[in-house]
Simulated scan of single mutants.
Amino acid sequence: MPIPKRQWYPGAIYHVISRGIRRSPIFLCPGDFIKFNRVLDNTLQYTPYHLHAYCLMTNHYHLLVGTKSDPLHKIMHSINGSYATWFNKKYKLSGHVFENRYSSHPVPSDYGLMAVSAYIHNNPLAANMIDDPIYYPWSSLQYYVNPELTAGSPHFSQSISERKTFNLSLNIKESVPVNSLVDTYPNPSEWSSFIVPNPPSGSPPPKAFTRERIRQLFPVPLHIYYKKYVEREWKLHCIQKSMKTKS
């Protein structure tokens, strides 16, 4: 049966999720996260798009993508294809890096845009990576809640005493060869502790990232009201999860 064609129109916004094949890691070190951001920048040169929110986990990523003149599949082909080629070359691998097809869900309304952006930013909290998603270094939340951060400024940083240990879904022992890790696709529950440090000082977000659509919904001041909104969405998620468990 042929795969149904994805619907698209200029200006559409999508929540995009792409996972490593067999849920294996697609980011093995901080340099991989940085390279992925550069791929997002390179894609912007050939297929313009807006990036309203993002969160790079360890075996998958979330993007809130707004289209311009090119359909989503062209944007994603450039992103995943470029990164997969680089990843296989770096780690001397072959074959698929991502699952066969990324998932994309159209965002139908402004409320949907708000809710999806909060969901994306709460991912590290849901995965028990960190106590406060503001401190996760590989998402766009820090640029929403800290007005001093701009596209050219350093990432939001913490003092040594405030740093969080990220209990990431990717837990790799330093003694395990990367090739062995990726080729054998181990069970995630068997991965050991892995700590991801903050990005290098001055490492900017992807050039396609823009806060303007969210800013329209949280006009004054964005960094206060958006932070409270993300926190409320997380509390609501926890309540709903608790109700499902009891039922």
Rank of each mutant, 00 (worst) to 15 (best):
I3F: 09
I3R: 08
K5H: 07
K5Y: 00
W8L: 07
A12Q: 00
I13F: 05
R19N: 11
G20Y: 00
G20E: 12
I21R: 13
S24P: 01
L28V: 01
F33D: 02
F33G: 00
F33M: 07
L40N: 01
T43S: 09
T47G: 11
Y49T: 08
H50M: 05
Y54V: 10
Y54T: 09
M57T: 02
T58F: 03
T58V: 13
T58I: 12
Y61G: 13
D70L: 10
D70V: 08
L72V: 00
H73P: 15
G81I: 03
Y83T: 03
A84T: 03
T85H: 01
W86N: 00
N88K: 13
K92F: 12
L93N: 09
V97P: 00
V97L: 04
F98Q: 07
N100H: 09
N100K: 09
Y102F: 02
S104W: 01
S104H: 07
P106H: 01
S109I: 06
Y111Q: 15
V116A: 13
L125E: 09
L125C: 07
A127P: 01
A127Y: 01
N128K: 13
M129T: 04
Y143Q: 06
Y144E: 05
T150G: 07
P154D: 07
P154Y: 06
H155A: 03
F156G: 03
Q158P: 07
R163K: 14
K164Y: 07
F166G: 08
K173W: 02
V182D: 07
P188K: 09
S192Y: 08
I195G: 05
S201P: 06
S203A: 11
P204E: 03
P205E: 12
P206D: 10
T210Q: 12
R215G: 07
L217V: 00
I224D: 02
I224Y: 14
K227A: 14
K227R: 04
L236M: 12
C238E: 04
S242A: 12
M243W: 14
M243K: 13
S247N: 13
